[in-house]
Design a protein around this nucleic acid. Structure first.
Length: 287
DNA sequence: AATAAAATCAACCGCGGGGGA
DNA sequence: ATCCCCCGCGGTTGATTTTAT
């Protein structure tokens, strides 16, 4: 079934967003919300496809985003969750308020992965790397599509089409897996999600409850506990400041999320985009 | 100081799922 | 029951920045 392209490729701008575009998008979303991403760019006067707008919003413009590197706690939580969920970045992100799946995915690939490898831990299975035989890849035998949930390291299923150059280059175990002082995360701490939930109290699966009730206060700690409302504890992303929109935002927010939603009919413009707004999946909830 | 290589991160692509018609 | 549309997800790419030579 040939899918329609998400947008008519012609006349659609691609590449980095400009401040002006950001401003248009934010301005539009704040005043109108998004009924359907497909029409957002048109209505906002942007030469972008809806998908691109959504991505830009969720990954960068969303007001509740926390920017900057993940701190230790967050990192541990990510590792812990990854051990349980595999590459389900959105699920993982859902448990880290203010973080996006893209951000976590990037951080994983650029930082955490390497750390684990240096520690001699397979970032995929979270099990100790069995030294030799670099050639012999992952044993994780049965291709059975396991539904995450408990079961610890479901080899997050190389399920996908092409492994990201399975390590390609990156590591070659090179590193005398020794130096690098990576104090905190001990091997066992990492692998055994169950046991440790490295995050102090945090998370998860003690035993395997499907619902990983993570984000214990201590864990997300510092970082903006999921503020009751989600919003208040966060900082506006730079662009907002740049645009001098914070004022607008304040008002807009009040207008947008009055208890019954100021936008005609209680439509939550940020449904699903933003934690406090009540738009997130219960189970995975931002809560 | 210049150049090359590596690392990082924003953005794109394509697929699958869910829901409505 | 089937088809179609939209959304969201995960993988990948490419531009930019940083670090090493």
């Amino acid at each position: 079934m040939g899918r329609q392209p998400c947008c008519d490729k012609v006349g659609v701008k691609k590449g980095p967003w400009t401040a002006e575009e950001d401003q248009k998008l934010v301005g539009f979303l704040l005043t109108h919300g998004h009924c359907c991403w497909r029409v957002v760019p048109k209505l906002a006067g942007l030469l972008r496809c809806g998908k691109s707008c959504r991505l830009r919003w969720t990954n960068y413009l969303r007001p509740d985003l926390k920017r900057g590197l993940l701190d230790d706690e967050e990192e541990r939580l990510v590792i812990d969750l990854h051990a349980q969920l595999g590459n389900r970045w959105s699920k993982i992100a859902a448990r880290l308020p203010g973080r996006t799946d893209n951000e976590i995915k990037n951080h994983w690939n650029t930082h955490i992965r390497k750390k684990l490898l240096r520690m001699g831990i397979d970032p995929v299975t979270h099990l100790p790397l069995h030294e030799p035989e670099p050639a012999a890849p992952p044993p994780p035998p049965p291709p059975q599509e396991q539904e995450h949930h408990h079961q610890p390291p479901p080899p997050p299923a190389q399920d996908h089409r092409h492994q990201p150059r399975s390590d390609g280059g990156l590591v070659s175990q090179d590193d005398g897996a020794g130096e690098v002082d990576l104090p905190v995360v001990q091997q066992h701490e990492v692998t055994t999600t169950a046991a440790g939930s490295n995050c102090g109290s945090a998370s998860s699966a003690s035993g395997g409850s499907a619902a990983v009730s993570v984000v214990s206060p201590s864990c997300s700690s510092s970082a903006s506990a999921p503020a009751a409302n989600g919003v208040e504890a966060t900082e506006w992303p730079e662009p907002m400041y740049l645009f001098g929109m914070d004022g607008i935002m304040d008002d807009a927010w009040d207008g947008l999320f009055p208890n019954d939603g100021g936008l005609g009919g209680g439509v939550d413009p940020f449904d699903g985009c933003y934690p406090g707004g009540g738009g997130f999946d219960q189970d995975d909830g931002w809560m």
